[in-house]
Design a protein around this nucleic acid. Sequence first.
DNA 1: CAAACAGTTAGCCACATGGCTAAGCATTTC
DNA 2: GAAATGCTTAGCCATGTGGCTAACTGTTTG
Lengths: 118, 118
Amino acid sequence: MAKHFDTQALDRYFAAMADPTRRAVLERLTQGPASVSDLHAPHQMALPSFLRHLRVLENGGLIVTEKRGRVRMARIEALPVRAAEDWLATLRRQWEDRLDRLDTLAEALEHDTKGDAQ
Amino acid sequence: MAKHFDTQALDRYFAAMADPTRRAVLERLTQGPASVSDLHAPHQMALPSFLRHLRVLENGGLIVTEKRGRVRMARIEALPVRAAEDWLATLRRQWEDRLDRLDTLAEALEHDTKGDAQ
DNA sequence: CAAACAGTTAGCCACATGGCTAAGCATTTC
DNA sequence: GAAATGCTTAGCCATGTGGCTAACTGTTTG
């Protein structure tokens, strides 16, 4: 029942997503696989700089790349995105549950006017 | 229709969540507000180091703090978590849509055996 | 096989991050 | 009002991150 989150993986997932260039790459890759050059084209920075962003995405497991001849193709990997989303959802759910319990408590206090809480 | 994501905000949200200490603080705060000392207690690091994690969370807008007397209380802020979650959901959805389109294409090719796509 | 192409590696630099200790400043509390 | 409490600031250090240029490797292509 208890969800198991790999903290190191979450570290890398979230860190990977904490950069506009890398998020843009992910968005681009939702439309299908692309080569390093294709992915690089819309960005101003030098290719080596860009390549390191791809590495961050890759060893965070968010994308997978494969070299064929002199071209390296990249595609998005679904699972890590799910993992990050799940962690956030779990967090939000816990928080909402707590608010629900507070509501319940508030209602209870309204009916039963003993003021011994707080 | 088009969702609007503040990139700088996303940078800070995701960066804030890319650290186990900070995620632990967020999880703790889903159970309700707490003082700096309370939040610090379960963590090994020195208080000043810990305080900086709180600052990262705060100016990423993930938590709100308020000082009353000599105690500073912190509570979680829902919206940024939502924003991050939404961005991930949007990303995943685009990706799934693309896969759906590929499925549709595959079906079409199965029925209509003309191989002029791709 | 020479040239163009697509990545890659190496190395440099500036700044950010994450940890520490030591000392300081308000606010209780005794 | 002195002492304890709860945070805060300042400053140091090591490592990580994000950018660059220059030079190199392996693969097509003319």
